[in-house]
Structures are given as C-alpha cells and as structure tokens.
Design a protein around this nucleic acid. Structure first.
Lengths: 205, 205
DNA sequence: GTCGGAATCGGAACATGTTTCACTTTGGCG
DNA sequence: CGCCAAAGTGAAACATGTTCCGATTCCGAC
C-alpha cells in the first residue's frame, strides 16, 4: 500500500502528487475514450494502459479492478452532473416538477453517451466496491433532495429521494440492458415522482 | 441451432426430450450447488460441467453464458417463490399490508441463500440477456400486482407495482453489493410501499 | 549532488469465460 | 436393424481480467 490505492498520498502540491494526479487522469480519460465507442467490453485494461501511456500494473495500482475504474469514472461524471444542475437549478414551482426536471436532465445527460453509461452501470454489480457504489447512490440521492425544498430535507424527503434514486438505478439498468426503451427511464421516473409526490395533476393513466 | 438454445425442441415426451431435460436440470443444479457456497465466483463453468457430468461445450449449448445460466436459475427460483406465495396468500387486510407481506416473505426467501442470490443478482448487469432479465422483472411485478386487489390490476396498480419492483431490485443490489445491511431491503420496501400506498398508519419518520 | 526507497515499467504468467474441432454416442426413423 | 444427423465428449485454443517480478526511473531527503 503506497499512495494511489489508499488515501493519504504524498504532500499535496509536490511534483510527485502532480504527476500521480496526471497519471490517474490519463487513465480515467483513456477508459472514458474507450467506453465511448464500444462500451464495457471495449474498455480492455491493456488498451487503457496503452492509451494512457502507463504500464498495466500502474493501472491496477490506481484502480483495483476494471469495475472500480469505471465506477470512479461514474462518480466523477455524476458529480459533474450534480454541479451543472446546481449551477442552473430547475425552475418548476412544485417540488414534484423540480424533481422531475432534475431527473430528466440527469437522465438526458447520461443518455447522451449511451455506451459510457452502459459501461458504468454494468460495473454496478461488482463485488468489493461497496464504497464507490455507495458514493454514487449518495450523489444521486443528493441531486434529488437538493431540489425538493429550501431548508434541509425532512425524513420523508429522504425516504422519497432514496426511493426515486432506486427507481432511477433500476430504470437505467433496464435501459442499458436492452430490456426497455431509452425513453422508459424518464417515463418511469415521472410516474414514480407522481406517485410519491403527487402534484395534483391527472393520475397515472 | 438445434434444441436447447432455441425453443421448439424434439417432440415432448420422447427419450431425447427427457434426457435433455435431465441434463439441463443437472447443469442448473450444479450451478446452484456451487453458488450456494462461494457465490458468483464459485460458479466456474468448468466446475459446473464436471459436477453436472456434462462436457463444457454442452453447458454452453444449453446456456449461452454464465450469466444466462444464473439468470435462468433465478427465473426458476422466483417462479417457485411466486407459486409459494400464491399457495399461501398474504393475510393483510389492506393492499399495502399484503404487498409488504409478500415482499418481506419474498426477500426473506432470497436472503436465506445469500450467496445464491448474490450470484444471481450479479448476473443482472449482463448484456445480451434482455429476455431473461425482462422475465425476472415481470415475475417480480406479477407477485406484487397479484395481491393488491381482487380484480385485474388498474393502470395505477401496475405503475405502483413496477415502481416497487424497481425498488426491490435496487435494494437487493445494494444488499448483495455490501452497500447496505440485509435488513435494509425490507426496510426500503416498507418505506416505499408506505409512500406509494399510504395505508393510513403513521408517516415515515 | 548523491542515495534510498517508492513508483513505474515491460512483459510473462495465471485464472477463467468462451469458442472450436475432430471424434464418439445416441435416438428417431425408414 | 441399420443409417445418419444431431447431441455430446474431451481437449486444446483463445480472450481478457488480474497478479507477479526483476529491472529501471524518479522523487525527495540529506
């Protein structure tokens, strides 16, 4: 155990830290580039290493498995997504409208790079990556709670948000697995939001 | 393309059909046996073949991939589950109570063999197995709609059931992935059911 | 500037899912 | 009964994730 795998790296700002951060970035970028066309299967660790100008062993020093690599990429992507959503908040007047808006925009963003999202979602089943998986879920949940009210979320808000996040994940799995149409993801989220936060519009049918 | 992979096999009842059904069963049983202790990783195709007294190529003739093998096993397990639930229906007086009961019993059943369930759930991310994955989802949804009312389910029932099924899947993934405690699965399902079918009991907190 | 240890490299080795192939067995059928 | 196409066998070959290891390079402390 030296630096990348565990936490406390070298003093931040040093040359070492910088070159390592750069390496890590190159690896992540290479993975994303490969995922972009070809999805999960196209992200082959040897290719990632080559594209990142790094030895295969180095890839594994930074990311303990292919799945972790993809999941960490997902954390980044979804954090960026959360930031964009925060920068340009939804405009709906009811919580339900805002939630739907934020989920739709998030989903649209993910669906813009289907192969990449597919690769990431496929990594979700991984064993031994609980921490990253948890982080992804938390960010997703945070995206939702963030737009429900002004103040801090109530317990009920948290429950609703968690439920929606679970629907989101399952719907994404259904989509990338080819079980459902892409549009089904947003449709499911609208339905669920309606059921959970019923905004007084017409009922389901 | 001969028999096992595609549908229309040999005339049912013939010796061929019987020996093939037996082989298929042996393979499934071998997979379950291996999954029982060791989960996904312990289900190694060579071992499955050996334990089933079958050549490796034969395993692949019946199941196009390891994931499909596990997913088909899951279909069986969950069909059996649905049958048991139907044989001894839930006794709750409200739809919400019955739904919670059925989901709890189903989850308990799955959690009784954690490694097996883990192996199956991990197979969910598979690509190119959309049909089996869809079937699993449908059965899960059917389990839920089956206990909501007497008559056929309304569109709203279907929407609620789908949502709950999605929560169920995500919660199972969280559990087998080590993200959440086992008890969290039922807890999430109770919360979601409460939110979706609010049975008039005290609210979430 | 030199030294020591950590990080990286290159590449082989290993593990396991999947495919292939030549050969043998089997079961339906004329 | 005897034929033959389909099914099954055994084993090797392949593809790719993961691990290992000796040689090399790099960084930071002195």
């Amino acid at each position: 155990m030296t630096t990348p795998a565990t936490s406390d790296g070298p003093a931040p700002g040093t040359a070492l830290a910088r070159s390592q951060a750069a390496r890590r970035r190159r690896v992540l970028d290479a993975a994303l580039r490969l995922a972009e066309r070809g999805g999960f299967d196209a992200v082959q660790m040897r290719d990632v290493a080559t594209e990142a100008n790094v030895a295969l062993g180095t890839v594994y020093r930074y990311f303990t498995s292919k799945e972790r690599l993809l999941l960490e990429a997902m954390v980044e992507e979804i954090e960026a997504l959360a930031a964009r959503l925060e920068a340009r908040p939804p405009v709906g007047v009811t919580p339900a409208a805002r939630v739907v808006e934020v989920l739709s925009r998030g989903t649209a963003s993910l669906q813009r790079h289907p192969e990449v999202t597919g690769a990431m979602v496929r990594a979700f089943g991984a064993a031994d990556e609980a921490d990253v998986v948890r982080r992804v879920g938390e960010i997703m949940t945070g995206i939702i709670t963030g737009v429900m009210h002004h103040g801090p979320p109530t317990p009920r808000d948290l429950a609703v948000a968690r439920t929606l996040q679970q629907v989101w994940l399952s719907a994404l799995i259904g989509w990338v697995g080819g079980v459902d149409e892409p549009s089904r993801v947003v449709a499911d989220l609208e339905t669920a939001t309606e059921l959970l936060l019923g905004d007084g519009e017409e009922p389901v049918g």
